[in-house]
């Protein structure tokens, strides 16, 4: 039997290499069984990641990587578990992860999807990249057209009086090049993937971002009908995958290396946004979080409360 593992991340991402390793582990453990797991990175199976909660339970693909933040249309409560910027340190992240994993497992269960494992996302530093002039305070951001990538960011920046606009990833390059937007919010670690260094000259760090982990899901009826030995091998390999990715010691080092590399390619790194601005930003994020949870309704308020409790807030 062959299982396909759908992965929407580009093959070049470190996470994809980890998932490739996971696949190899499973296949090695089940070498004498009639079972192979095949990894399809880069979204090459053609499944929209926003549709996963519809596709996966139907058994159209056996296993898939899922990210709660992409699933907000079908499961609005999921998008208010982790709100960007609300969780910033590794300590906070570690406190929240068990609760978050519990919430995702429950919610996906309701959709007929069994969570067989998780993939952690490195903690990221989100910076403001600008084309023509250095921007490193909220005051500077006033009157600047800022590209963001998620609705929660639009809400937060609008609260702060900054005119933020969502521009899809594939249009960001041209938008910055031509001046449709002046600046873009982006993690330095991934900036080169959209060639940001070619269209911006200045960057400053604004906020740290801890992200919800990715989940590995299998349709529940499929999972329950699967040979226990196969299940065992998958879960073991997934645990190892989690252990490998749930490491944050090197994140800051990697961030600095990424900035260094961007500098070599012509991006000037300015001073970080001041602490006072970051405090204002955090307040705005809190407000957004409350607002989103309320708006989503259903389990969202409960999820938020559980995360807040874990954070001790």
């Amino acid at each position: 039997e062959e299982w396909r593992l759908n992965n929407f991340l580009p093959e070049t991402r470190p996470e994809s290499a980890q998932i490739e390793q996971f696949t190899a582990d499973v296949n090695a453990a089940l070498a004498d069984k009639d079972f192979t797991l095949t990894h399809y990175p880069g979204g090459s199976l053609g499944i929209k990641n926003t549709d996963l909660l519809r596709v996966l339970p139907k058994g159209a693909v056996e296993m898939s990587l899922m990210w709660s933040n992409y699933l907000g249309r079908d499961a609005p409560a999921l998008s208010s578990v982790f709100v960007q910027g609300a969780i910033s340190t590794v300590e906070e992240l570690k406190a929240v992860l068990p609760v978050a994993q519990e919430i995702y497992t429950e919610e996906y269960n309701d959709w007929g999807v069994t969570t067989v494992g998780f993939v952690a996302i490195p903690t990221l530093s989100v910076s403001v990249f600008c084309a023509d002039k250095p921007v490193n305070s909220l005051e500077d951001l006033n009157g600047v057209k800022l590209r963001v990538w998620a609705r929660e960011q639009v809400e937060t920046f609008t609260n702060l009086g900054v005119s933020a606009q969502i521009i899809p990833q594939e249009e960001t390059y041209v938008a910055l090049k031509t001046g449709v937007v002046d600046c873009a919010l982006y993690p330095a670690l991934y900036a080169h993937t959209i060639s940001l260094q070619e269209v911006t000259s200045y960057a400053s760090f604004l906020y740290p971002m801890a992200s919800a982990p990715y989940s590995l899901g299998v349709a529940t009826d499929k999972w329950e009908a699967t040979d226990p030995e196969i299940r065992e091998a998958i879960v073991t390999a997934a645990d190892a995958l989690w252990e490998r990715t749930n490491q944050y010691d090197k994140d800051f080092e990697l961030e600095l290396a990424a900035r260094e590399k961007l500098s070599e390619m012509g991006v000037t790194w300015g001073e970080d946004f001041p602490e006072s601005d970051r405090a204002l930003f955090l307040d705005a994020v809190s407000e957004t979080w409350a607002m989103l949870a309320e708006e989503a309704g259903g389990n969202a308020m409960d999820y938020r409360q559980r995360v807040l409790t874990a954070l001790g807030r």
Partner: peptide, 9 residues
């Protein structure tokens, strides 16, 4: 460019 991390420019 986005899928292969090559320079869009």
């Amino acid at each position: 460019g986005a899928l292969t991390e090559t320079s869009i420019g």
